[in-house]
C-alpha cells in the first residue's frame, strides 16, 4: 500500500502549478525515501526533476516501490477541487490501476475522494550527473520572475552574463533591447531578499524565454531561486519546497549557428 498525507494541500497545488505548463504526463516514482518525478517537456529542451522526501510528509507509507504514470492536467484539475486549508492524502494499492486523492477539511466535516486512472508510460530515467558549476546565483524568486517576464517582451531568449561585477540579464529583438543588472546584496534586511553570486569563472549563456517563464511558475513555492550555470551545460533553476524537497528545472542553452 502507498499512502502519503500532507496537512497543507496548498503545497501540492503549487507543485502542480509549477509543472503543468511543461509536462502533460509524468511518472511518479514512489519508494520508502519519498516521491520522485523526472520528465522532459515534449520538445526535449527542458527537464523537470521533482523530489518530495518521505520525512516531509505528515504521514507516509510505501510498502512496495511504485511507478505511477499520471496525467498532469488531470491531477491539476483534481487538486483545484481541494479547499485552501484542506489536508490531502494520496492513496494507491500495490499494482495500482488508479490513485485516490482524499481531501479533508480542517474541522473534518467534509471528506472528498477523487480517483484518477493511471496511465502506462514508457519512460526512460535519465541520469543527471553531478556537475560543479562556474556560477551559482541565489536571488529572490519574485525578482527572477519579474526579470524573465519583463525581458520576454523584447525577444525570444534571455542572455545571462555573469562576471565579478554581478549578473546581467539581457534580451533584444525587433523593438529594441533591454538589460537588467544585479549585484551581490547580502546586506538585505531579510534573508529572502538577498542576492548571492558565487562565480568561479565568468560566463555568458542564452536561454529560451518560453521555458524560463514556465520555470518561474514555481516562484510561489519558495522566496529564493538558485541558478547554477557552466559553459555548455544546461542551466539548473532550483526552488526548495519547504522542508519537504525541491524542484529543479534543467534547460539546454541556445547556441549561435
Amino acid at each position: 500500500m502507498f499512502e502519503a498525507r500532507l496537512v497543507q494541500s496548498a503545497i501540492l497545488k503549487k507543485v502542480l502549478d509549477a509543472v503543468k505548463d511543461l509536462l502533460t504526463e509524468a511518472t511518479f516514482e514512489c519508494s520508502d525515501s519519498g516521491i520522485q518525478v523526472q520528465a522532459m517537456d515534449s520538445a526535449h529542451v527542458s527537464l523537470v526533476s521533482l523530489n518530495l522526501r518521505s520525512d516531509g510528509f505528515d504521514k507516509y507509507r510505501c510498502d512496495r516501490n511504485l511507478s505511477m504514470g499520471m496525467s498532469i492536467s488531470c491531477m491539476s484539475k483534481i487538486l483545484r477541487c481541494a479547499g485552501a486549508e484542506d489536508t490531502v492524502t494520496l492513496r494507491a494499492w500495490d499494482n495500482p490501476e488508479s490513485i485516490t486523492f482524499i481531501f479533508e477539511s480542517p474541522n473534518k466535516d467534509k471528506l472528498a475522494e477523487y480517483e484518477m486512472k493511471l496511465i502506462n508510460m514508457d519512460q526512460e530515467h535519465l541520469g543527471i550527473p553531478e556537475t560543479s558549476y562556474s556560477c551559482v546565483i541565489k536571488m529572490p524568486s519574485g525578482e527572477f520572475s519579474r526579470i524573465c517576464r519583463d525581458l520576454s517582451q523584447f525577444g525570444e531568449s534571455i542572455t545571462f552574463a555573469c562576471s565579478k561585477e554581478g549578473i546581467k540579464f539581457s534580451a533584444s529583438g525587433d523593438y529594441g533591447s533591454a538589460n537588467i543588472k544585479l549585484v551581490q546584496n547580502t546586506d538585505a534586511d531579510k534573508e529572502e531578499e538577498a542576492v548571492v553570486i558565487d562565480m568561479q569563472e565568468p560566463l555568458k549563456l542564452t536561454f529560451a524565454c518560453r521555458y524560463l517563464n514556465c520555470f518561474v511558475k514555481a516562484g510561489p513555492l519558495c522566496n529564493q531561486v538558485q541558478l547554477s550555470m557552466s559553459d555548455d551545460v544546461p542551466l539548473v533553476c532550483e526552488y526548495k519546497i519547504g522542508d519537504i524537497g525541491h524542484i529543479k528545472y534543467y534547460l539546454a542553452p541556445k547556441i549561435d549557428d
Binding site: 522532459m40 526535449h44 541520469g127 539546454a252 541556445k254 549557428d257
Partner: peptide, 14 residues
Amino acid sequence: APKQRKMREFFVKW
C-alpha cells in the same frame, strides 16, 4: 537566431 539545443545532447555528453 541562436539554435536551441536539446537535453539529449547533454545526457550523451555527460
